[in-house]
Structure formats: C-alpha cells, structure tokens
C-alpha cells in the first residue's frame, strides 16, 4: 500500500489543521452544557406553566347542565307545551291578518296601466312575427313560410294594426305570385 500513488498524493496534501484558539475547549464545553441545561429547565418550567394554565381553564370553565331526558309522559308539561304552541300560532295568524289589511289593492288608474301594458306586450309579440315574415318574404323559396307567419299574426293578434298590415302583405305576395 505504501507504493500506492494515490496514498502518496493524499499524504503529501494532508495539511495540519489551524492552531486552536487560545480559549480553553474544556471550559467552553462546560459553559455550553450549563447554558443548555438552563434553557432546558426554563423550557420545562414554561411548558409546565402552560399545562397548568390550560388545565385550570378547563377545570374552572362553567359546565352547562343538561336536563335529564324523561321517557315518562308528563301531562302538565304537555299542556304547557300545547298552550305555548297555540299562543305562537295565534301570533302568526294575527300578523297574517295585518299583512292582508295593508296589502295594496289596485286602483282604477292602476288597472288602466295594466291594460296598456298588456297591449304593449301584444304589439311587441305581433311585431316580432311580422319582422320574421318580412325577412323571409323577399326570398321566393321562403314565401310560404312568410305567409304562414303573417297568418299567425292575424290569428293571434286580430285587434292590432299589425294584423291589417299582415293582410296587406299576404295580398301583395299573392298578387306577385299571380303575376309570375
């Protein structure tokens, strides 16, 4: 092994460690041990105190006592419960009556508004049908579909001016068809 070049190289490169400091290693280690002991003692005391505090908190905390459950029927208790439920039901009925009284009843002017609103909705629906028919009418192949939509508008909304417009359009389309 002495002729091993690797060993020779390593032994050659093996330098001595730097000199130790002047401070005494023994005293350093002993001081460190004492310091660690103090830290451990302090930690133990702190943990103990925390434990005591938690335990005291748990012990001193007031506990809610639950009433024991009884399987035996108690007529007096049942009567009291029924009376309580009746009183509660009466209160609800009373509130419902009051709500009914203050509910807003529509006035004649409100009724007219409703009529106008309905008329507006009818116009919008009829317009929608006419609009669809108008988009289909210029295409010869789609004309029957357009006529069907015009007729639908006449059937569903006969009282609107859209119905008379639909009649005019059907007549125009039919005359165009005859001319062709």
């Amino acid at each position: 092994m002495t002729n091993d070049p690797l060993k020779q190289l390593l032994r050659h490169a093996d330098t001595a460690p730097p000199l130790a400091g002047e401070s005494n290693l023994v005293s350093q280690v002993k001081r460190r041990a004492k310091r660690n002991d103090r830290i451990k003692s302090a930690s133990a005391v702190a943990i103990l105190l925390i434990g005591i505090a938690i335990a005291a908190n748990l012990v001193l905390q007031p506990r809610v006592k639950k009433a024991p459950l009884s399987l035996e029927p108690n007529p007096a208790a049942l009567k009291a419960e029924i009376a309580r439920l009746n009183a509660e039901a009466n209160r609800h009925a009373e509130i419902a009556d009051r709500l009914m009284q203050i509910e807003v009843i529509p006035t004649p002017s409100d009724a007219a508004d409703v009529q106008r609103d309905l008329q507006r909705q009818r116009d919008e629906a009829a317009l929608s049908l006419i609009y669809q028919a108008e988009t289909l009418a210029p295409v010869p192949a789609q004309r029957p579909a357009a006529v069907a939509l015009y007729k639908k508008a006449i059937d569903l909304f006969p009282q609107t001016h859209w119905a008379s417009l639909a009649k005019q359009r059907i007549e125009a389309l039919q005359s165009t068809q005859e001319n062709l």
Partner: peptide
C-alpha cells in the same frame, strides 16, 4: 479529533466548531 475533523471537512476552517460539537456530545 481536530485533525480527523479537518480531513473529513476537506481541510476547511470549520474545524473549531466541529471539535467543540464533538466534545460537547461526548460531555453530554
């Protein structure tokens, strides 16, 4: 211990700390 630690650490200057740790562990 210093020499061995110095070699194991790759001849680096951390040998003082390690030597103290070794003897602290031994003391403990």
């Amino acid at each position: 211990v210093r020499r061995l630690a110095y070699r194991l650490l790759g001849w680096r200057d951390e040998v003082d700390d390690v030597t103290q740790d070794v003897f602290f562990a031994a003391f403990r």
